[in-house]
Each structure stands twice: as C-alpha cells, then as structure tokens.
Design a protein around this nucleic acid. Structure first.
Lengths: 334, 334
DNA sequence: ATGAAAGCGCTAACAT
DNA sequence: ATGTTAGCGCTTTCAT
C-alpha cells in the first residue's frame, strides 16, 4: 500500500505538501498539485484513515447501541441514523445489546477504546452510572428511546406518556370500562410512564387499574403469549373488554396466543399497542396503534450528536420529546 | 486520557513491559504485573485501539454493506453477522447502500481507507469490476445474497433457483395453468435465476410464461403496487390464477394494491413469494412462502470471512449455496 | 525479566 | 509556496 511518502518521492515534494494537497489545508502551486495528483493516480494511493484519525484525534465514526436490529422499530432508527451519518461524513458501528446490561457496558468500553467520536445509546434496563466516568472525561453520549434518571446526557424520547393517555382515553370514550394492560420490563422508564398515563386516564373516570388485568412479563413476544394465557385463564365475566399492550412485539405475541388458544376471543377483545406501523400490520385485529416516531427519533438524535461533535450545538442535558401518533387502524384505507 | 507511558512511569517500568502485561505477550514478573495493574486501575487507563491497530495492521472491524436495514430480510442477516462478529471479537460497520451503485463504491473505498479487516457485501445490481484492484492488493471481500459474475470472491447465496422451481411446481400440481410473476430488477442474478426456474417448471407441463403475466418494476413495494394495477387492467378471463412475487416486499405491495383497488380479487388469486417470514405474515392471504435462509446466510458468510481473516480457511472463490424452504402457509398452525 | 529505540502513516506547528 | 521535524499511542525487534 502506497504511503504519503511514496507519493511525495514520486512527485518530488515533501510529505507535508502531499498532505496539504490531500486536505486542501493550505495553498499549493497548481503545477505541484498536478504532479501530486498524478502520483496519487499512478500509485493508486488511498489515505490511511487510521493514521489520520490517530493524529487528528477524530475518527468520523459513531456508535449505535440498540437492543435488537430485527425489531422494526430499531431498524427504522438505525436506518435514519445511518442515513444522516452518511450524509454528514460519518460511519456507524452497529451494536446489538440484546437487552443485556453486560453487553452494553462492554460495547461502550470497546467503542471508546476504538475512539469513536460519539455514541447513540438506546439504554437497556438497569443502572447506567457506569457512564459517568466517560462523560466526565468528555466523551459524547446521547441517549435515545428511554430516559435514564441516573445519568445526565442529552436524550431523545417519544412522548409515550401522552400517547398512552390518549389511547386509554379513547378506549374509555368508546365505552370500555375494563381495560387490561400488557406491561413490559417494569424497570424501564417507558413502562412506568405508560402505566402512569393509563392510571391517570382511568382516574378521570373514577376507575383504577385492576391487578388481575395487569399482565407482566418480558418485553418480547413470549411476554405477550404469557399474557394471552393469563387472559384466557380469567373467568369470562371478569375479563377486560379491551387490552393495551405496551409494545408492539408483545402485542403481536398476545394476538398470536389468542389466535392459537382461543380464536373466538380475537373478535371480542379490542387491542391497542405502541410500536412501528410494520408490526401493527401483523395484527389485523388490532384497533388502535400508538405509532412510535422511530424515524424522527433517529433523525433528531443523530443530528443532535453530530451537531455537538461539530460544535454547532453546545453540550446540554435537555430531554427532547417527540410526539407519537394515535392511529385508528379501522378508519384508514386498507 | 492516560497513555501507556503514564502507566509505565507510575509503575516504574518501561512502556514495553506495560504493553506486554496488557497483551500477555511475554512473561512478566508477578510483582511487576501487580504494580502495572494497579497503575492501570489508578489512572483509569483504556488502550487506544487506533494506535494499536495502526501498528498491528489490524482493526478487528469488518464492514457490512446491505441495501436496506429496514427490510426484515437484511435486518436478519445484519443481526446474525453482528452476533457472530461480537462473539469473535470484531465490530461491525453498518452501511446501507440503498441499492445505489455509487454509494456502494464509495462505501467500499471508505471502509478500506479505514482499514477494516474485511467486508461482507450484498451487492447492488450493476458492474462490480471496481472491486478487482482491492482484491488484487489482498483485501478480503465476501459476497452475500447475490452472485456476481464479474468478480471472483467467495459467495454465499440462497438456493433461489431450486426454491422458485419448487414453488412453480407446486402451483402446477395444485392445478394452476396460468401463473403470473412479479419480477424484480432484471439485472440482478437472483431475478434471472428465478425466472429461469419458473420457465423450467412451466416447460415440464408444456407451458410457457405469457408476456402479459410478467409484471416488471422496481424491487420495492411500489413495484408490487404497479403489478397490482397491471393485473387488474387485464380482462378477467385473461388473468393468471396465481401469482408469484420474486420478493416479499413486492408481494406485500401487490396485495396492498389488490386490497385497495379490487378487494374481491384477494380471495381469488393465490400468491407465493420469497422473503422473510415476518414479511409473509403481513399478507394473510398468501398461500406459499419461499422462506429465505437469512440467518443461515448471515452466519455462514460472517464465519467464512472471519475464518479467512484468522487463517483457518484459505482464500477461495467457492459459491456456497444455502437451501430455501417452501412453506405452505395454510397448513401451519395459526 | 526488562528496556531502548524504531516506526506504523499521517498532520501541523514552526520554519524558510 | 514549500520543507523540517516532532509527535499521535502503541507494538516489537533487538539488546542486556
């Protein structure tokens, strides 16, 4: 592989000049430029970005940590982040944390060891104080998707609270009085907020959330399946008339479980969920969808990080909230 | 940020020794090791992988180029590749080529400039001779998903040909004689192979593929929508009784279009498609699915690359073919 | 068991 | 307009 020095020799100039031609970082005589370009052409020179990054202390690479790229919600975030990064001259290291705290910690360490310029982190549930030393030494981390109380970094989240409130309100207006809920991980801020919103809406109607109507489990399809079993196990007269799933994957699992174990109930129970529209389409019987603004979150969070890196935006610890959309799936074309 | 030299000073040894402690690359006196570890602890030392990589000429980073991470098929490949990479100590740079040849070329250049150890490339349609110089200078590239005739590199693809043949055969056995096809990009090897398979199956029944039953368009949802319009525009008596979409995204578009423009036809026309099972679930009326082995492809292709990088496997130019599965969606539980 | 020193390929003061 | 030189932080021969 040709080095800058090889180009310099061939063009009869110093490495400095070649470097400046490469970067346009100072005026160079046109004839010299031509000779250097020719040499670059001849030797098929490609700059070694590793050396450049070591020297410049900048890699033009950012990390993205999400729990599961197979979840359309995260795939949509990753798509947008990659797109913005590309447009702004950055590369993206993709890290699947798999909802494992250990993996997240390990990845953050590796990424900063590799000198990424910054990180977009959709945090898993659990303690995040391990991030403090990184922030203290000036590393750039922006949080997405979940608010983390034990750390101060800029955050971009969806307005789950408002959306869940609107969904519960809608069910109440539709005449439902027995609202069930499929909860995700109870340590996640999103779960708690949604639960709070649900209770708030119920309270306005003088109702409270029945314990038997709270289905708890993992935030995965299996959690939804378990909820379906618990639902069916209830005496018919005591079942909720509608069910809200706190995420679309569990919602999918719930309806799959119902279809499998008690298909007749599918037509009876009305459901709503939060997630990407692709996932909602998997569930033809779903009535409402709280559409998560995945693309907006991806766009906002990546621009935020890159703006901070470029100095356009000062470091801050604001929490940016992007609204969700409550979609009535039965009032849309096809 | 603490450097190796800082550790060396604090521990009263040379940088050499610290390096060897870090890498276990030669015996070091236990007491010395202890002092070094203590210093590392005290100073919160993290190695600079950039410097290490520059020196070792190895980054433990690979690139993955796919056309669209939002397509569940590619998301599944990315998931597996990332998982394998993580387990084997590599990081993954995710690149969305967006089916743009220009973007692909640009990405390959950037990735090798950043000194990735190797590349997994799901090539877009078009000429790939631009890869030759990279291969000539010893860069590692493995191809996924599509066979590229104009380049010699190890390749992992699905057995589309056989799967499409089996699907066509099944339709014929089911009694269908008028089979329509929704084609993707006609320059892609996958499209041509599938077309060939379809013709082969038809020929066995003394049939040929009617021109009016070939719907051509982009390999996206819009292509499927266009196919739906063309389908409806045919005189009812001249419509195919079943339709094969060459990928699941077009298949989805086709059924969406039908549902929108002529819902009654949905029940009439039988469809089959190739793609991920998630996408198939979007189309409840679909009959057959050629399930693409995305996870296997991801696993095989990433292990292949990493085996080549580690010297376990010698460089070769074999084409590894992974079988698809023909799934009868009506004979499965729920 | 340990260290000195060269160098990976590039950039950027500081000259001239 | 161009060149000299000193690193960026690490690894690794070659010595001792």
């Amino acid at each position: 592989m040709a080095r800058i020095r090889d180009i310099a020799e061939r063009a009869g100039v110093s490495s400095t000049t070649v470097s400046h031609v490469l970067n346009g970082s100072r005026p160079v005589h046109p004839d010299t430029v031509a000779r250097v370009r020719q040499a670059i052409e001849d030797l098929q020179y490609t700059p070694n970005m590793l050396a450049r990054s070591l020297r410049r202390r900048q890699t033009n690479t950012i990390g993205l940590l999400i729990s599961d790229i197979e979840n359309p919600y995260f795939a949509e975030i990753a798509y947008t982040v990659e797109k913005v990064a590309y447009e702004r001259g950055y590369n993206l290291v993709l890290c699947n944390t798999d909802e494992s705290h250990e993996k997240e910690v390990r990845y953050v360490e590796v990424l900063f060891a590799k000198q990424v310029d910054g990180l977009i982190l959709a945090p898993v549930a659990g303690d995040h104080s391990y991030l403090a030393p990184y922030l203290a030494r000036g590393e750039r981390v922006v949080l997405a998707n979940r608010y983390v109380p034990d750390i101060v970094a800029p955050t971009v989240i969806a307005d789950d609270e408002a959306a869940m409130y609107a969904l519960a309100k809608r069910f109440l207006e539709d005449g439902h009085r027995r609202i069930g809920a499929i909860l995700g991980m109870e340590t996640a801020s999103t779960t708690l907020e949604r639960l709070h919103a649900l209770r708030r809406a119920l309270a306005e109607y003088g109702l409270s959330l029945d314990d038997a109507w709270q289905f708890r489990g993992q935030s995965r399809q299996a959690g939804g399946l378990a909820a379906a079993q618990a639902f069916i196990a209830l005496p018919p007269a005591q079942r909720p008339t509608c069910v809200i799933a706190f995420n679309a994957v569990m919602h999918d699992g719930f309806l799959l479980g119902l279809a499998d174990l008690a298909p007749a109930l599918l037509a009876e129970v009305v459901t709503g969920a939060s997630g990407s529209s692709l996932l909602a389409r998997l569930c033809p019987s779903a009535r409402y969808l709280v559409q998560a603004p995945s693309h907006q979150i991806g766009r906002v969070v990546s621009n935020l990080l890159l703006d901070i890196l470029s100095g356009v935006t000062a470091w801050h610890t604001d929490c940016i909230v992007v609204p969700c959309t409550l979609v009535d799936l039965k009032h849309r074309p096809a």
